[in-house]
Nucleic acid binder design. Structure first.
Length: 254
DNA sequence: AAGCAGTGCAACCGCCAGACT
DNA sequence: GAGTCTGGCGGTTGCACTGCT
């Protein structure tokens, strides 16, 4: 490794573990428990630092470790948990018995991140929005409704009101109490949508729900603020929509 | 067959919080 | 309260393997 090794300068071994070392560690812990990790290697007769022993035990030698490929259910859990918790791998691991934070972190970086990038170039989310477990979503133009209030861009707070025929109107109003449940927006969102310019009302829908935004600005603001994203992220999101629509259209006037 | 690039994964590091002295 | 120790966490690295040219 590039960084200064903590163990090497003390004459301790580093790098991959041998079968003998594994066996030594296992039998010591089975007999005595791990107790003090720092003292363990000396007591067990290992030329490793305590940290290395702990990592090896927790990630690979513990009896209840589940090895092998992740199931699609496990992957789904990781994706959902990551959406909620971010890079809190240990918290995610707690939801997957037998899986370690290190393993989950690796799976995320090697498989799931790419998977998500391929299927969802930009995720539409907002701290105020909870996703439901519905399937595909599409973005379509809709006629401005009479119930829509004129757009305002003064706030990031929104309210949802009325749920007629599973249509939720999302207005740009200041309301603190209500949360909006939005369907996940997957690949079909990007491939099937019809994006039209100069519309003042937008609808995101799937098989079960339909969400109507009273203004371009409202929908635009829902696309902002994901995990603290900034204005540039929001702009990227809009450009993605327009690019993927395959249409040559004007960007809304921000 | 050899060389190269990309990928997956085990293992390391620094940092931090809580426990202990 | 201050200093030290320890365990735990997340980020990162480097090696081994695989596939492609």
């Amino acid at each position: 490794m590039v960084r200064a090794p903590c163990c090497e300068k003390m004459g301790l071994k580093k790098g991959p573990w041998t079968q003998e070392e594994d066996q030594t560690l296992i039998s010591y812990i089975q007999k005595h428990g791990h107790g003090n990790w720092r003292a363990l290697p000396k007591l067990a007769g290992l030329l490793r630092c305590g940290k290395s022993c702990r990592l090896r035990w927790i990630n690979y030698l513990k009896p209840d470790i589940k090895r092998g490929n992740f199931s699609s259910e496990e992957e789904d859990i990781i994706i959902k948990m990551h959406e909620l918790l971010g890079n809190r791998w240990s918290a995610i691991a707690a939801k997957l018995p037998g899986r370690t934070d290190n393993e989950i972190k690796n799976v995320w970086h090697t498989h799931l991140k790419k998977k998500l990038l391929n299927s969802e170039p930009k995720r539409v989310s907002n701290p105020k929005i909870k996703r439901s477990d519905s399937n595909s979503s599409t973005l379509t133009q809709s006629e401005p409704t009479s119930s829509s209030s004129p757009s305002t861009t003064s706030s990031s707070e929104f309210s949802s009101f009325s749920d007629m025929n599973n249509t939720t109107m999302i207005k740009s109003e200041d309301t603190e109490s209500e949360e909006i449940t939005m369907p996940p927006i997957d690949e079909s969102f990007w491939s099937e949508e019809t994006v039209m310019p100069s519309s003042n009302s937008w609808t995101v829908s799937n098989d079960h729900h339909q969400y109507q935004f009273d203004s371009v600005e409202t929908f635009q603001q829902h696309s902002f603020g994901y995990n603290g994203s900034n204005f540039d992220d929001g702009m990227d999101f809009w450009y993605d929509i327009f690019i993927r629509s395959g249409e040559s259209i004007e960007l809304p006037d921000f």
